[in-house]
Amino acid sequence: MYRIRMHGRGGQGMKTASRILGTAFFLEGFEVQDAPRYGAERRGAPMFAYVRADRKTIYERGIIVHPDLVVVSDDSLIAMATAGVLTGLTAETPLLICSNREASFYHERYDLKCQVIVFRLPPTTSSRSPRSSSCAGAAAALLGMISPHNLNQAVAQELHTLPSNLLKENQQAARTVFDKLQDFKGIVQRRAKMEIGRPQWLDLPLEVASIAAPIIHAPASSLQMNTGVWRTLRPTIDLEECIACGQCNTYCPDGAISLNTEGKPTIDYDHCKGCLICLAQCPAQAITAQPEQEEVS
């Protein structure tokens, strides 16, 4: 069986990527299972999708803990423990990242033992990047048994609602990435069956309701939840342009903008989710947005 896990952010198309890959496998005659997993269902929040493919009926279900290939559509997720990108990765598991950086960057930064392969998104004419098709095309190249024809078909099947020019662009993107990664064709290895250990069960003790009831006593514990990591676009305020009207503070749905005594705003980037409502509201056009990417320290 092949087990592939694809990580992205809500809205980046990783569910679609997993479906394209699943359909491509299916067209190659494999039995297939694919599914997305969302936590908080929101754009920008980390999510993943997974694909299983085998020559016989698949009985396994649920989250893939020991993947044969991990695909990441957004490199800022790697550092995020809750995203679980590196969970179950071994030296034999290729890590495929959609990024403009070199593979060596990730090796050094995360002390990775596995092979890291990076690919760039092909340029597009439209505003919607063909990220899902590219990720599926990249994964297909590394897997090695998916033909360009079936990859093309799979993109067409999964994106059949797109206008034909966009569909074509997606098909081209999948193919471009697929061709570029041919040096890595077939490097994904199916994991040998792992030995089944014994469960470390525990007898759950009876505890008093003050402990055992689902109650959070700690005040403002949501501050500990770094929702800023969901952000794909970062708003920046140019204080020179700012006229201290306070609109951004009023409209921010996350209360992530505070005003100082002069009425000038500051953004709390640990909790700004990047919705850009502030940008839309600012009468002085003092707020701009830049794509987030992992900072190089």
């Binding site: 469960p199 470390q200 069960w201 109650i215 006593h217 700690a218 005040p219 514990s221």
Partner: peptide, 26 residues
Amino acid sequence: PRLLYTAAELTQMRGLQEIAKTQKNS
């Protein structure tokens, strides 16, 4: 009868209870 639940799961629960200040009120 047994609940399928591991020692590692309880350890994780204890961590969350710590954050939730389960044994203290506000």
